[in-house]
């Protein structure tokens, strides 16, 4: 499988990375180079092989339902580029 330039534009959009028109062609080439290389995985017969879910042999441990966190609004927002009255600020979003 290989990607065309429209696919690269679509992936960039899905990834939320602005891509300049002149970058599309070289990026297409780079991605196709990598995709062609990983293509060799298709040779492997994986019939009946389950996908790996975890490398560790452990059970998901659970925590108790107690409040142990929060109450740190300043820590939460202190690195933010823009805040107002304790909220994060972003350009207006239309619903």
């Amino acid at each position: 499988m290989s990607v065309d330039q429209d696919t690269v534009r679509r992936i960039a959009k899905l990834s939320r990375i602005a891509i300049k028109e002149e970058q599309v062609e070289p990026m297409t080439g780079e991605l196709n180079g990598i995709l062609a290389w990983v293509e060799q995985l298709r040779e492997v017969n994986t019939d009946g092989v389950p996908p790996l879910t975890s490398v560790v042999e452990a059970k998901l441990s659970m925590r108790e339902d107690v409040i142990t966190d929060g109450g740190i609004p300043k820590d939460v927002t202190r690195n933010a580029p823009e805040t107002e009255d304790g909220f994060f600020v972003v350009p207006k979003v239309m619903e």
């Binding site: 107690v66 409040i67 142990t68 966190d69 929060g70 109450g71 304790g86």
Partner: peptide, 25 residues
């Protein structure tokens, strides 16, 4: 529940903005 699905922050309704937020959230 008292706390969130994946963090220990409170779930109570109507708190001050970002006051019931853990660093995970």
């Amino acid at each position: 529940s008292n706390s969130k699905l994946f963090s220990g922050a409170a779930t109570e309704f109507g708190a001050a903005p970002n006051s019931q937020v853990s660093l995970v959230d």
